[in-house]
Nucleic acid binder design. Sequence first.
DNA 1: AAGTGGTCTAGACCACCAT
DNA 2: TGGTGGTCTAGACCACTTA
Lengths: 251, 251
Amino acid sequence: MTDPLAAGTATAAPLYREVRRLLTASLQAREWEPGAALPSEARLAQRFRVSIGTLRRAVDELVAEQVLVRQQGRGTFVATHGPSRLMFQFFRIVGANGERDLPEPELLAFERGRAEAREAAALRIAPGERVLRIRNLLRLGGEPIVLDDIVLAQRLFPDLAEKAFRERDSTIYGFYQTRYGINVVHASERLRAAAADRASARILKVAPGAPLLEIHRLAMTYHDAPVELRRSRVNTAHHAYSSELGKSPAR
Amino acid sequence: MTDPLAAGTATAAPLYREVRRLLTASLQAREWEPGAALPSEARLAQRFRVSIGTLRRAVDELVAEQVLVRQQGRGTFVATHGPSRLMFQFFRIVGANGERDLPEPELLAFERGRAEAREAAALRIAPGERVLRIRNLLRLGGEPIVLDDIVLAQRLFPDLAEKAFRERDSTIYGFYQTRYGINVVHASERLRAAAADRASARILKVAPGAPLLEIHRLAMTYHDAPVELRRSRVNTAHHAYSSELGKSPAR
DNA sequence: AAGTGGTCTAGACCACCAT
DNA sequence: TGGTGGTCTAGACCACTTA
């Protein structure tokens, strides 16, 4: 194998990282559609001119981040944002006994606006740039539990209209993925307790001033590029946010 | 290599899992002290009669769970519960700008009691069994921010007295590890928003009824055996709980 | 210089899935 | 039966730490 970085610039990155980078680039370029199978590991190893072990190590990392999914005997697939991925990765609200229900969404508002300073900084766009503001209610077991206020850079979602958003046939991240080729791969959240303002209280059917769990989330695609800013307010009277510390996801 | 499970009982577990099990057993038996180096990978591979690749795979998993720590050129070490592990794995409270401070603890109460039904179920002991109840305040930047109520099965911590707990020279989990050989390796948490009761409000210097972030944590050692039950109340006026979704820790 | 973990390879064999 | 991913091996070479 020829050294990919022969010059003496510090220490060369390991080969499997370079292979991972190439795989990610192909995913970004939509060389393989969401849900589709990648070429076999043997073929990919040939293509990148590495051993199968090195190729597998690169795929291992993308599988760990749930960007790819392996199925023994069948192949390796581009992960889709279906209900199961939502529940495993992006929806952490559980019932009193730890049980998880699929949330039922209701679109409350869909508006166009301009980015405020803090929103612009988080989304890495210019202050005042056009944004979409979406208000979405999630019900669990019929009860209104989560109120989401979503901000998107309009530039990333050209032509997105309320009708298309409302009539999507999948999760929100699934919609981003299939309609706009934007694959949310991780998110960073900050949680606080806050008193319910009047509007939130009315929608969530709690008393004004009641304690709500407030979550600020920045969802990102490859290379930590920001995609979506979201503020959630959760009625935690009969639900909770679940967090696991120091345990590898699944096994 | 002889098959470790020759009989036809379903599918045999992979060899690296068996090696991992043996390593975990040695750790539980304190064959290597916290902070001490394990034998080299070559020697461990010889000992377990596996190839170095298989041995490394077992160690990989324990490193991913932060039970072991690798240092290139030096060796592989039993992870200790020092300040850095606290901050990376078990303390998720950050400031308004995301900065992390080391909390300064103050012991408020140390009492003996009996396990209530829910506590007993969580700790997997009998209802009414002896427990220790510890109330601990954490300050950040001098301000009281987190109030912890800790419940321990006395059986796991024989002879534990207030003085020893108060005068410990490390984190609480470091104390469990060095004094009792109990290594907390992961924890499961449930977060809610709740109104401050009078006692909490006084200690955290907030108004009674102010919204607090309430965290119920069950800390576990190897094989998910429960160790500690903890309820935290956090003043999130100037701090937040940080959560990363779908990102491998560190890299 | 010696010892450690980190990377990479090449190949064998197994388990599982589709046909 | 053929193709896929999953496991395991044996060995070479590199990077880093310590003395």
